[in-house]
Computed example of a mutant assay.
Amino acid sequence: MLPPSRAQLGLFFILLFPANIIGLWWAVGSPLVMEPNSICRKMKRLAGKHAELCQTEPEIVNEVSKGARLGLRECQYQFRSRRWNCTNHNKYFGKILQQDIRETAFVYAVTAAGVIHAVTQACSMGELLQCSCEVIRSRFPPHPIAGAGSEASAWEWGGCGDDVEFGYEKSRQFMDARQKKGKSDIRTLIDLHNNEAGRLALKNHMRTECKCHGLSGSCTLTTCWKKMPHFREVGDQLLERFNGAIKVMGGNDGKTLVPVGHSIKPPDQQDLIYSADSPDFCNANRKTGSLGTRGRACNSTAMDLGGCDLLCCGRGHREEAVVFQENCLCRFHWCCVVQCKKCTVHKEVSLCL
């Protein structure tokens, strides 16, 4: 199994880390200013489709960067109570990306989903010249909307629907371009599969929104359009796929992936897949990318993932008094200012030993 190249890791760091982080050392050991334009300025380190996109569509690359950061934030939210909490510590994060574990599968999927979301949203907002709202195509009528009643005698597709097909294509071009065309090693097949699973988590869950038109609240005409799901919904779906991720191995033909275990169903396009078991992430280990859980805040009364028993890996926890300032006694003054006082808050927190 081949690890991602240094150039691939470098691209991932440029895409994922926030724009205000300066001087990070990425996989090739070069300090970069982490802003969207850095992707194209440093693209000489890479080649192929990425360089072409930078030359012909730099504004798309800017949205790709936003989408990758959106994916990282969602990863940190979804894993906030887990032993590995999607930390953006670059030295450790790079080690995670070099492994074919379930956590890496989620990172790739949520990043691909973030890219399609950002590009599609930019189209709908009129921020890109290459696209706008969805091109209306002939479709079957949507389901009747609540409250329309029998008066809903006509409908039409309209509004500003999200052109998810354009966002899907740009996400595919950019994310999948990291893999060499025609390669069929296990790592490449797994990464491409998880990229697609992330895109489908958004594309296959578009929702229909409708609005009634007519006098006196009547609904003589209904206008409907397609909208993307909220990205938190996409993250929730991918977390479910993460929890049910399927371990795979290479098939005999060297071009397919088969599940490990005779009773395991073959993965479909929306499943997340991996080929190596994850470390337990209990202790710091730079080799595996684990920061450990010592000092992490936990819930001493919970029995789930965020509970001290699981998060602290059986080492126990200690209680610590924390004092901080927060806004309180806020009042609205016409017009239009909210003034708050600062209150001192004392709180007991549980920290892993």
Rank of each mutant, 00 (worst) to 15 (best):
T256G: 14
V248C: 10
D277Y: 07
Y274F: 15
S218R: 03
V258H: 13
W225N: 04
L257R: 11
Q269I: 03
C282I: 01
I246M: 11
Q270A: 14
S278R: 03
A276F: 05
L200I: 09
N283A: 02
D277S: 12
L239K: 13
G235D: 08
Q270T: 13
R241E: 14
L202Q: 05
P259M: 14
G214H: 00
K211R: 09
K226M: 04
A284H: 02
G251T: 12
K265S: 13
L272P: 05
N283L: 09
S275W: 01
T256I: 13
N204C: 06
L238W: 09
Y274K: 01
L202M: 10
S216I: 06
A276H: 11
L257S: 10
M249D: 08
D268E: 11
P267E: 11
I246Q: 08
V248A: 08
V248F: 12
N283R: 12
S275T: 08
H262N: 10
T220Y: 03
L202W: 00
F242K: 08
D280Q: 06
F242E: 05
S275G: 10
T223H: 07
E233P: 04
S278C: 01
Y274R: 04
D253P: 11
D271S: 14
C219I: 02
L221W: 00
H205R: 06
V234D: 08
E240A: 15
K226D: 06
L272C: 04
D236F: 11
P266Y: 12
F242D: 04
M228V: 06
G250W: 05
A201M: 01
M206W: 02
S275F: 06
F242V: 06
Q270C: 09
N252I: 12
E233Q: 14
Q270P: 01
M249G: 08
P259I: 12
L215Q: 00
V248S: 11
L239T: 07
K211M: 07
C224P: 03
D268V: 09
F231Q: 03
T222K: 09
G251V: 12
A284C: 01
Q270R: 11
T220C: 03
S218V: 04
V260A: 13
H230G: 11
C224G: 04
G217F: 09
K247V: 02
M228E: 02
R232D: 11
M206A: 04
T256N: 15
M249P: 05
L257N: 10
T223Y: 07
N252C: 14
L215W: 03
P279Y: 05
G244N: 15
T256F: 15
K226L: 01
H230I: 07
D280G: 06
E240N: 12
L202C: 01
I246S: 11
L238Q: 08
V248I: 14
F242Q: 05
M228A: 09
R286Y: 04
I273L: 05
G217D: 00
G261I: 08
L239W: 13
M249C: 07
T208V: 14
G251A: 13
L238V: 10
E209L: 01
P267I: 12
P259F: 13
E209V: 05
G217P: 01
Q237M: 15
C219D: 00
D236G: 08
G250I: 15
L202Y: 04
E209C: 06
Q237L: 15
F281C: 06
A276R: 08
G250A: 15
A245N: 07
L221N: 00
P259N: 10
C224L: 00
N243T: 05
H230S: 10
G235T: 10
A201H: 04
